[in-house]
Amino acid sequence: MRFRGDIQTFEDEGFLRRVAQSSAVTFVIGLGATLVFGIVLAMFAPGLFDGLLSGIFAADGRGFIDYLLWIAWVAVATAVSFIAHELVHGIFFKAFAPAGARVTFGANWKRGMLYASAEGVIYTRAQYLVIALAPTFVVTAALIAAGFACGCPVAGAFAATLHLSGCAGDWEYAREIAADPLITHCEDTASGVRFFGAGDAGDEGDRDEPAAPGAAARGEVRP
């Protein structure tokens, strides 16, 4: 296959900068949406509004204790969502991989990132896009549903915002793939992903190392 570029997730400063910017924008937009959502619920469907937040102001509420419990709900839901995020990646990594392929999980504490990896497995363009984006939809929807089920829809929306802020790296993977229509296959690695173009997915002959780790090089690389 012809090498078309790569992303070294933990080393590419340009990639990390774009992820941080996207994460910050997502948080601001999500926070605003959560506030609007909470106001709409309070005005038009007060029965659905978070009981713990209502307890802050209610005469029979527990005031600050209810607020702390609400914060704890958000914190636990967010922590669980990050773990679920990687599990969803892992499920799709496994579903699209050949029999016997191994999926691993880990963390880069320096960068504050959890990750799932199917090192060395080559996926089609469409498969890798599904793997990258699945947690954005699956986990976010689960958080919203859990918020309503537990009587804390605003907390669920806020946890969903925090989770989406952590999806920016996946979106950057997808953006890189979408930006190059000639990418046909993606090889997962422990440190990121490598992109390949035209050629047989099993052809090892043209799979050369990129000239500079983390560079989004383009064009054909020959042995």
Rank of each mutant, 00 (worst) to 15 (best):
S81P: 05
L68F: 13
W70M: 04
F195C: 01
Y123N: 04
A217Q: 13
D6C: 11
A59T: 14
I177D: 04
A134F: 03
V40L: 15
D180P: 10
W73S: 05
E220A: 13
L133D: 09
F105E: 14
P213Y: 00
D170C: 02
V19P: 01
R222W: 06
V121W: 07
V138N: 07
A149Y: 04
S191N: 12
T9S: 15
V138G: 06
P46H: 08
A33S: 13
E172C: 02
G100C: 04
L129G: 06
I39A: 14
F37A: 11
F195T: 01
L16K: 12
I29F: 14
K94H: 06
I177F: 03
P210I: 00
D200Y: 04
A20P: 09
F158M: 06
S117K: 02
G151F: 00
F64L: 15
T161W: 02
Q21M: 14
R207G: 02
A33P: 06
A134Y: 05
G61D: 04
V25P: 08
P210R: 00
G205H: 08
Y115G: 12
A146D: 05
A212H: 13
E11V: 13
N108G: 08
F44N: 08
T9D: 15
I39Q: 13
Y67H: 07
P153S: 08
G14F: 10
F15V: 13
H89K: 05
A141M: 09
Y123R: 05
G100F: 01
T184I: 10
V103R: 10
F10D: 15
R218K: 10
G166H: 08
I83H: 11
N108P: 06
S117L: 08
I122V: 13
R18E: 15
R175H: 04
A198T: 10
T9H: 14
I65Y: 08
Q8W: 12
P210F: 00
I71P: 00
L114N: 13
F137N: 08
K94V: 01
A97R: 01
E209I: 07
D188H: 01
S23W: 12
A84Q: 10
A201G: 05
A168Q: 00
L35F: 15
A216N: 09
G202W: 00
H163Q: 06
A168N: 01
A190S: 08
A116C: 09
R111V: 10
T184N: 12
W109L: 15
A42L: 15
A97M: 02
A146C: 05
G166C: 06
A159W: 03
P181L: 07
A126D: 09
R207I: 01
H89N: 01
D203A: 01
E86I: 04
M43G: 10
A58R: 09
W73T: 06
I122T: 07
A132H: 08
G30Y: 10
A77H: 07
L41A: 09
G192L: 03
R207T: 00
T124N: 09
L162H: 04
F37T: 12
G47V: 05
D206A: 12
D206V: 01
R17Q: 13
F137V: 12
A118P: 01
G5R: 11
L162R: 04
